[in-house]
Amino acid sequence: MCTYRTEIIETKGSGKGTLAWTTVDEATVYFDHPVHAPFAHSINIDFRNTALTNGERIALELEPKSALKMAQTILQLLKDTPIEITELDNVIA
């Protein structure tokens, strides 16, 4: 099925595309059919520099269990790192 479910979030960071590093200030996150990954559905993330208009993105297609593991790992890392470094409180992993 096509879920069409799409979330767009602001990001602050950088990513490396096919040619070079670039600022990524937006991410599109969606659960839908992948283009390349051999699954019916995947969590797809497109990191983008919105100043670029050539369509360049840093794209990921993750099988849902991998996406969940990735999300949990990120949360755990943020939780375990001292607040003085992350400047985040109340991280729930």
Partner: peptide, 10 residues
Amino acid sequence: PDDAAATARN
């Protein structure tokens, strides 16, 4: 095509 689709979705 895949980049264009991502742009259009966005």
